[in-house]
Protein backbone atom coordinates (compact mmCIF):
# COMPACT_ATOMS: atom_id res chain seq x y z
CA UNK A 1 0.00 0.00 0.00
CA UNK A 2 1.53 3.34 -1.02
CA UNK A 3 1.89 6.24 1.43
CA UNK A 4 -0.80 8.19 -0.41
CA UNK A 5 -3.20 5.25 -0.18
CA UNK A 6 -2.64 5.01 3.57
CA UNK A 7 -3.47 8.68 3.93
CA UNK A 8 -6.52 8.76 1.66
CA UNK A 9 -8.18 5.46 2.57
CA UNK A 10 -9.56 6.96 5.79
CA UNK A 11 -11.39 9.67 3.87
CA UNK A 12 -13.57 7.52 1.62
CA UNK A 13 -12.77 3.80 1.53
CA UNK A 14 -12.51 3.34 5.29
CA UNK A 15 -14.30 6.46 6.44
CA UNK A 16 -14.82 5.86 10.19
CA UNK A 17 -18.30 7.41 10.45
CA UNK A 18 -19.92 6.52 7.12
CA UNK A 19 -18.29 3.18 6.28
CA UNK A 20 -16.86 1.64 9.45
CA UNK A 21 -19.59 3.19 11.63
CA UNK A 22 -17.18 3.58 14.55
CA UNK A 23 -17.24 6.29 17.22
CA UNK A 24 -20.97 6.92 16.95
CA UNK A 25 -21.31 8.52 20.39
CA UNK A 26 -19.31 11.69 19.60
CA UNK A 27 -20.65 11.63 16.05
CA UNK A 28 -24.24 11.92 17.21
CA UNK A 29 -23.62 13.89 20.38
CA UNK A 30 -21.40 16.77 19.32
CA UNK A 31 -22.65 17.58 15.83
CA UNK A 32 -25.28 20.18 16.79
CA UNK A 33 -23.42 22.69 14.62
CA UNK A 34 -20.71 22.57 11.97
CA UNK A 35 -18.12 24.24 14.18
CA UNK A 36 -18.75 21.81 17.06
CA UNK A 37 -18.42 18.83 14.72
CA UNK A 38 -15.18 20.18 13.31
CA UNK A 39 -13.75 20.90 16.77
CA UNK A 40 -14.52 17.37 17.93
CA UNK A 41 -13.04 15.96 14.72
CA UNK A 42 -9.79 17.89 15.07
CA UNK A 43 -9.44 16.98 18.76
CA UNK A 44 -9.97 13.30 17.90
CA UNK A 45 -7.52 13.55 14.98
CA UNK A 46 -4.84 14.94 17.29
CA UNK A 47 -5.27 12.09 19.77
CA UNK A 48 -5.40 9.54 16.96
CA UNK A 49 -2.14 10.69 15.34
CA UNK A 50 -0.35 10.92 18.69
CA UNK A 51 -1.59 7.56 19.95
CA UNK A 52 -0.69 5.87 16.65
CA UNK A 53 2.84 7.29 16.82
CA UNK A 54 3.39 6.37 20.47
CA UNK A 55 1.91 2.90 20.14
CA UNK A 56 3.89 2.03 17.00
CA UNK A 57 7.04 3.17 18.84
CA UNK A 58 6.48 0.98 21.88
CA UNK A 59 4.70 -1.92 20.15
CA UNK A 60 7.67 -4.29 20.50
CA UNK A 61 8.12 -3.54 24.19
CA UNK A 62 4.56 -4.41 25.21
CA UNK A 63 3.76 -8.10 25.86
CA UNK A 64 0.70 -9.29 23.95
CA UNK A 65 -1.35 -10.07 27.06
CA UNK A 66 -1.28 -6.56 28.49
CA UNK A 67 -1.41 -4.64 25.23
CA UNK A 68 -5.01 -3.44 25.59
CA UNK A 69 -4.56 -1.93 29.10
CA UNK A 70 -1.25 -0.42 27.95
CA UNK A 71 -2.93 1.16 24.89
CA UNK A 72 -5.76 2.52 27.02
CA UNK A 73 -3.32 4.11 29.50
CA UNK A 74 -1.47 5.76 26.60
CA UNK A 75 -4.67 7.02 24.99
CA UNK A 76 -6.11 8.25 28.29
CA UNK A 77 -2.89 10.15 29.04
CA UNK A 78 -2.95 11.83 25.64
CA UNK A 79 -6.61 12.79 26.04
CA UNK A 80 -6.01 14.27 29.49
CA UNK A 81 -3.08 16.29 28.13
CA UNK A 82 -5.30 17.51 25.29
CA UNK A 83 -8.03 18.44 27.75
CA UNK A 84 -5.67 20.48 29.94
CA UNK A 85 -4.08 22.21 26.96
CA UNK A 86 -7.47 23.08 25.47
CA UNK A 87 -8.78 24.41 28.77
CA UNK A 88 -5.68 26.59 29.06
CA UNK A 89 -5.36 27.95 25.54
CA UNK A 90 -8.73 27.65 23.76
CA UNK A 91 -11.26 28.04 26.61
CA UNK A 92 -14.11 28.94 24.23
CA UNK A 93 -13.87 25.65 22.32
CA UNK A 94 -13.33 23.80 25.60
CA UNK A 95 -16.57 25.26 26.94
CA UNK A 96 -18.50 23.75 24.00
CA UNK A 97 -16.72 20.39 23.74
CA UNK A 98 -15.65 20.03 27.37
CA UNK A 99 -17.96 17.16 28.29
CA UNK A 100 -17.13 15.19 25.16
CA UNK A 101 -13.34 15.39 25.38
CA UNK A 102 -12.97 12.62 28.02
CA UNK A 103 -15.13 10.43 25.77
CA UNK A 104 -12.33 10.39 23.19
CA UNK A 105 -10.64 7.84 25.47
CA UNK A 106 -13.31 5.28 24.76
CA UNK A 107 -13.77 6.24 21.11
CA UNK A 108 -13.41 2.88 19.42
CA UNK A 109 -11.73 4.40 16.36
CA UNK A 110 -8.64 5.19 18.40
CA UNK A 111 -8.30 1.80 20.07
CA UNK A 112 -9.30 0.23 16.76
CA UNK A 113 -6.49 1.93 14.82
CA UNK A 114 -4.00 1.16 17.59
CA UNK A 115 -4.90 -2.53 17.44
CA UNK A 116 -5.42 -2.87 13.69
CA UNK A 117 -2.70 -0.62 12.30
CA UNK A 118 -0.24 1.03 14.70
CA UNK A 119 0.70 -2.22 16.45
CA UNK A 120 1.67 -3.80 13.11
CA UNK A 121 3.25 -0.91 11.17
CA UNK A 122 6.10 1.58 11.42
CA UNK A 123 5.95 5.05 12.93
CA UNK A 124 5.65 6.99 9.64
CA UNK A 125 2.85 4.82 8.25
CA UNK A 126 1.02 4.87 11.60
CA UNK A 127 1.14 8.65 11.74
CA UNK A 128 -0.21 8.84 8.17
CA UNK A 129 -2.93 6.32 9.02
CA UNK A 130 -3.93 8.38 12.08
CA UNK A 131 -3.97 11.56 10.03
CA UNK A 132 -6.03 9.97 7.24
CA UNK A 133 -8.64 8.39 9.53
CA UNK A 134 -8.68 11.59 11.58
CA UNK A 135 -9.31 13.68 8.48
CA UNK A 136 -12.12 11.34 7.41
CA UNK A 137 -13.66 11.58 10.89
CA UNK A 138 -13.33 15.39 10.94
CA UNK A 139 -14.87 15.72 7.48
CA UNK A 140 -17.84 13.50 8.22
CA UNK A 141 -18.49 15.21 11.58
CA UNK A 142 -18.27 18.64 9.97
CA UNK A 143 -20.61 17.53 7.18
CA UNK A 144 -23.13 16.06 9.62
CA UNK A 145 -22.85 19.16 11.81
CA UNK A 146 -23.33 21.46 8.81
CA UNK A 147 -26.41 19.55 7.61
CA UNK A 148 -27.98 19.60 11.08
CA UNK A 149 -27.18 23.28 11.57
CA UNK A 150 -28.53 24.15 8.12
CA UNK A 151 -31.83 22.32 8.65
CA UNK A 152 -32.14 23.01 12.36
CA UNK A 153 -31.02 26.61 12.69
CA UNK A 154 -30.86 27.92 9.12
CA UNK A 155 -27.17 28.71 9.31
CA UNK A 156 -23.77 27.21 8.49
CA UNK A 157 -20.72 27.86 10.70
CA UNK A 158 -22.85 30.44 12.50
CA UNK A 159 -23.56 32.36 9.27
CA UNK A 160 -27.33 32.72 9.01
CA UNK A 161 -28.80 32.46 5.51
CA UNK A 162 -32.48 32.04 6.42
CA UNK A 163 -34.28 34.45 8.67
CA UNK A 164 -36.07 32.78 11.56
CA UNK A 165 -35.84 29.31 13.02
CA UNK A 166 -35.16 26.04 11.24
CA UNK A 167 -36.60 22.59 11.90
CA UNK A 168 -35.63 22.27 15.56
CA UNK A 169 -35.80 18.48 15.42
CA UNK A 170 -32.48 18.42 13.58
CA UNK A 171 -30.64 20.16 16.39
CA UNK A 172 -32.04 17.72 18.94
CA UNK A 173 -30.91 14.12 19.36
CA UNK A 174 -33.43 12.42 17.02
CA UNK A 175 -32.32 14.75 14.21
CA UNK A 176 -28.80 13.40 14.57
CA UNK A 177 -29.98 9.87 13.80
CA UNK A 178 -32.17 10.98 10.89
CA UNK A 179 -29.46 13.14 9.32
CA UNK A 180 -26.81 10.46 9.81
CA UNK A 181 -29.07 7.85 8.21
CA UNK A 182 -29.65 9.91 5.08
CA UNK A 183 -26.00 10.93 4.83
CA UNK A 184 -25.01 7.24 5.06
CA UNK A 185 -27.30 6.38 2.15
CA UNK A 186 -26.04 9.27 0.00
CA UNK A 187 -22.38 8.63 0.85
CA UNK A 188 -22.56 4.93 0.08
CA UNK A 189 -24.49 5.50 -3.14
CA UNK A 190 -21.94 8.06 -4.38
CA UNK A 191 -18.85 6.11 -3.38
CA UNK A 192 -19.98 2.59 -4.28
CA UNK A 193 -18.16 2.83 -7.64
CA UNK A 194 -14.87 4.05 -6.12
CA UNK A 195 -14.88 1.30 -3.55
Amino acid sequence: MSKLQILTKGIIKENPSFVLLLGMCPTLGTTTSAINGMGMGIATMFVLVMSNIVISLVKNLIPGKVRIPAYIVIIATLVTILQLVMEAFVPALYATLGVFIPLIVVNCIILGRAEAFASKNGVGDSALDGLGIGLGFTMSLTLLGAVREMLGAGSVFGWKFVDGDGILLFVLAPGAFIALGYLLVIFNKLTSKIR
Binding site: L61, I62, V66, A70, V73, T77, T80, V85, A88
Partner: peptide, 20 residues
Protein backbone atom coordinates in the same frame (compact mmCIF):
# COMPACT_ATOMS: atom_id res chain seq x y z
CA UNK B 1 6.02 -3.06 31.50
CA UNK B 2 2.54 -1.98 32.56
CA UNK B 3 3.98 -0.39 35.70
CA UNK B 4 6.58 1.56 33.73
CA UNK B 5 3.94 2.75 31.24
CA UNK B 6 1.62 4.02 33.99
CA UNK B 7 4.60 5.63 35.74
CA UNK B 8 5.61 7.54 32.61
CA UNK B 9 1.98 8.51 31.98
CA UNK B 10 1.61 9.85 35.54
CA UNK B 11 4.85 11.83 35.28
CA UNK B 12 3.81 13.37 31.97
CA UNK B 13 0.40 14.34 33.33
CA UNK B 14 2.08 15.96 36.31
CA UNK B 15 4.28 18.06 34.06
CA UNK B 16 1.41 19.12 31.77
CA UNK B 17 -0.77 19.94 34.78
CA UNK B 18 1.88 22.25 36.18
CA UNK B 19 2.49 23.93 32.84
CA UNK B 20 -1.21 24.54 32.15
Amino acid sequence: VLFVITLIAAAMLGVVYNVT
